[in-house]
Amino acid sequence: MDSNSLFYSLELVAGSGNTLNVEQTTALQTSLVILKKNYKFHRVLFWGKILGLKEDYFIAQGRGEDEMKDKKTLYSFNCMDWMLLAPATDSVIEEVSKTAKGSFVGDPSYVYEHVEIHRAGGRNDAIQEEVVTKVNEESRLAVTVHQIDEEASVVPRGAYLRSPHGLVQINRSFGGLSHSEAGKLDNFLHFSKAKNLKKKSILEMGDLNPAIDFLDVLSDDIPKGSWSLQLECASRVLVLRSLLWPGLTFFHLPTTPQHGHIYIGDGRKNLDLPFMI
């Protein structure tokens, strides 16, 4: 969620149980302003918190001119000193998916090890080769943040525009979804590069507005029912929770442009989802 609206938007996602205490919020208000200036970001988002066994990672995200591509992720333990995370490349993602298991520890230099035994040759003269993959927790953090952004970051339909040049920017004239629109998953989009859009039939494509509908719709997610949509805070705030990434909460105040999402959780994807719904 945008750092400027942090002081009231945290209250709106508090229904999931986790919040920040006053010391942390005030520290964020100060440090994110400095962060924005130092890194020359257009705006700074407070992305969330990943709970570790020893320490918790606080995560902020800076956005440049293009909201989708110019992203930088930073982490901190005390909400004041921010460290930049390296972008997650495909090779790192693969390594992390092999090695990292269980909860985060809370130490960026903690090393996860994975031993894979490759067998070569025939049955009798089998040559065993041990391949050890090592990954530190900092790259796991980068990968986790990247994956959550890819799979669970949500925006209401119409909040972002893509210009004909491909630049994605905030839609200044977005007035919010109406109450009836806000009750349907079709009006919420994944804020990541579209994957399903090309698979749609021509008939469905006919209704889409190329400036707005350049993202995937949540209702196309597999399995069906991987989002929980509810009205909270006396039924005035629309809250979406991801069941695939438990801990991700999105809020939107219908008929106002206020929206945002935050992740506070243990950084583990819910692979058991198909059994649970």
């Binding site: 209250e11 709106l12 508090a14 229904g15 149980g17 986790n18 919040t19 920040l20 205490n21 006053v22 942390q24 909270e232 805070c233 006396a234």
Partner: peptide, 12 residues
């Protein structure tokens, strides 16, 4: 609870 970073929000 708010000090501890838990809660449902003040109004709630």
């Amino acid at each position: 609870l708010e000090q501890a970073g838990v809660g449902l929000g003040r109004e709630e």
